[in-house]
Design a protein around this nucleic acid. Structure first.
Lengths: 207, 207
DNA sequence: CCCCCATGTTACCGACCGGTAACATTTTAG
DNA sequence: CTAAAATGTTACCGGTCGGTAACATGGGGG
């Protein structure tokens, strides 16, 4: 307990000026904790506290914890798809370049990640109920992403696009898990290398 | 409530003859539920019930839920390493054959798995605390397994064993996650195909 | 200035969970 | 058969969690 020596009224709230809106603050705090401690391992109270607010206000923005989870997942997915859009704009008409650049970005994210794998992957593992809205959103996103890779492989002239796309996706997804036992940096580098190899091999074949 | 028409005393317990010992029954029941509903999503009471016993007895075999989790994980890992041992006996002195056969077995397991990914992978995602005993066991196992793959790649004469091993591991781990959006069967087949390709390419190069 | 609306505070609810105690019952071994 | 060991039954504890009610507060715009 803090005693108030100088007779100033004990303001428990510092007049912090928050730049980002509350809803978003809650979302990033939730994301942080979900990722670090697991979705089920963190309570809404802790989230509110981390967002420098309280449970009641949190529930004024999100009807339930499940909705909060879902919105968080949606946000991550939206960010990823934004990334794809940016990428396909930069490498317009160059499907091989898109695949390579995507692997480079994955590698960069791996490098910046200490332990604790992919947030989306973990969330998927933590939500067994196939009817959970967040899970549905993730499932749809995975399908979209895989289709995108298939399309790119087709456009790049790979002789068996479905096969190559599956190969890409397997490696992209597996890199996170593999990184925990061999180091994220190395895994990232090897990921980029093998994608480059595949692209070069395909080009050579095409000539 | 069952009424007892013929005056026989209402035995609430059917004299079920259990063939497998209780401890193991608890472990398989726990494994089932852990895998289907997530580790944190299932309570010890439900596990005891599924094992046709009760919470008290469960706690006579396992000091805590965490210990139960750990023993379950240990069991899965032991089973997997048993599998490796059997495989290396059958393909003694044939590292390429071992890699191929391993991919075949993974494919078979994928085929037999409806949704819900790898139990070990999910458990890893569900236990964020790096000091959790189960997590430690899994981490050590992953390292051992990866070293084994590196050794096999070296023995098989791959020019860059670390690279090839990472490639293998990435695909092996990623297959489960990828399978949920493209079908386990196809992923399994493609996994086997790419491993075969790698081995054949390496052989051709070696000649 | 005053009112309104967003936010903070506190207290609470019911449900569930991990874990334990005490005792009853069944099974097994000698 | 009998005693001991294993298993079942019930009730309970403390704690946490998701979620809500009621009310206080404070700041910004008319």
């Amino acid at each position: 307990m803090q005693t108030d020596i100088h007779g100033k009224r004990p303001k428990t709230k510092k007049p912090v000026r928050h730049t980002i809106p509350l809803r978003e603050r809650i979302l990033v705090a939730a994301g942080d904790l979900f990722h670090k401690q697991g979705i089920r391992g963190v309570g809404v109270e802790a989230i509110a506290e981390a967002a420098q607010t309280n449970k009641m206000t949190l529930y004024r923005y999100f009807a339930s914890k499940d909705e909060l989870i879902t919105e968080w997942v949606r946000g991550m997915i939206a960010h990823k798809e934004e990334d794809w859009k940016d990428l396909s704009a930069r490498f317009r008409g160059d499907p091989e370049g898109q695949l390579q650049e995507w692997s480079r970005r994955i590698a960069a994210k791996l490098r910046a990640m200490e332990e604790r794998g992919s947030a989306l992957g973990n969330a998927f593992a933590e939500l067994p109920d196939p009817n959970h809205p967040a899970r549905r959103v993730m499932q749809e996103h995975k399908v979209r992403e895989h289709k995108r890779v298939v399309r790119l492989c087709k456009a790049a002239g790979f002789p068996d696009p479905a096969f190559s796309a599956n190969l890409f996706t397997m490696m992209l997804e597996g890199a996170h898990s593999c990184g925990t036992c061999v180091g994220m940096r190395q895994i990232g580098e090897h990921l980029v290398q093998v994608v480059n190899l595949m692209v070069e091999n395909n080009r050579r074949r095409a000539i």
